[in-house]
Simulated scan of single mutants.
Amino acid sequence: MAKGKKIGDFRLNEFVVYPAHGVGQILSVETTEIAGTEMELFVISFAKDKMTLRVPTAKATAVGMRNLASAELVEKAMKTLKGRARVKRAMWSRRAQEYEQKINSGDLISIAEVVRDLHRNDEEREQSYSERQLYEAALERLTREVAAVDGTEEGEASEKVTGILISRAA
């Protein structure tokens, strides 16, 4: 397959977002026989996680795979981070479930909301283990996509996001 060839909404070698795993890169498209049926699959690499995922090309959009966010959407996500944390008074288990759903939705704004709501400054109360895990998962997804959209390293994107979170508290 030629570099940059378009299949549906996606191109070879471009970065995409898979809801349950975050940012990955389409390496190739392969045809495989599964249960007697020929199937065309995207081969997506998540280098940071040392994982390869195969997604049927016909089902890619249906499972929530999408192109990287636009620069405008990233800017909107950064504005979301600047807002006040909205923490509901529901039990932690219910809130944790909602946060998990937002992270796995793949929606950049929802992920930014989780980061904003779970961010703690050093002088604030301690986070529980599960709260910290959700925060770090959301932060990683957000910074990976910001880095891919901006064409920068993850460290730079992390500094950008953290800078906004810290300035919000000041």
Rank of each mutant, 00 (worst) to 15 (best):
Q97C: 14
R132L: 15
R141S: 14
L68H: 04
E154D: 09
R54F: 13
A147S: 05
G22Y: 08
L165T: 02
K76S: 12
E72G: 15
K102W: 10
A96I: 03
E72M: 14
T143L: 02
R144Q: 14
E136I: 11
S105L: 01
E30M: 05
G163N: 07
R168M: 08
E100N: 14
D117A: 02
R84W: 09
Q25T: 14
T31C: 06
E38P: 04
R66N: 03
V55G: 06
F10V: 03
L27I: 06
T31S: 10
V63E: 08
F10K: 01
L73Q: 05
V149P: 04
A148K: 02
E14N: 07
F10I: 03
E156P: 10
A170L: 15
Q101G: 13
N13W: 13
A157N: 03
E98A: 13
L165G: 00
I34P: 00
K82L: 15
E72C: 13
L108C: 08
T52V: 12
E153C: 06
G24P: 08
K5M: 13
K50E: 03
L134Q: 04
A2G: 11
E153Y: 05
G8T: 09
I34H: 00
G155Y: 01
A169M: 14
L108A: 08
E156F: 08
R132W: 14
I166N: 14
A157R: 00
A137H: 02
L108Y: 05
A138F: 04
A137Q: 07
L139S: 00
A69M: 05
L134M: 09
V161N: 00
L41R: 05
L118C: 02
K76P: 01
E124C: 07
R132P: 06
L165C: 04
N104Y: 04
V29Y: 03
L81S: 01
R11W: 11
Q97E: 15
K50V: 01
G163A: 05
E100S: 14
D49L: 15
K88Y: 12
V114H: 02
R94P: 08
L134A: 05
R89Y: 13
E123P: 06
Y99M: 09
S110L: 12
T162I: 12
I111H: 00
V161F: 03
E156C: 11
Q133W: 15
S45V: 06
I109Q: 11
S93D: 10
L142E: 00
G83T: 10
I166E: 15
R84I: 03
T152V: 07
V146M: 04
V55D: 07
E38T: 02
V114I: 06
R94E: 12
S105E: 02
V149A: 04
L81E: 01
R125F: 11
R116P: 00
F10W: 06
V16M: 06
L73A: 08
D49V: 08
A90V: 13
A77W: 09
K5D: 09
E123K: 09
G8S: 06
R95P: 06
F42P: 10
T32Y: 15
I26E: 01
I103P: 01
L165D: 01
R120C: 07
Q25V: 14
R120T: 09
A90K: 10
E126V: 05
V16F: 06
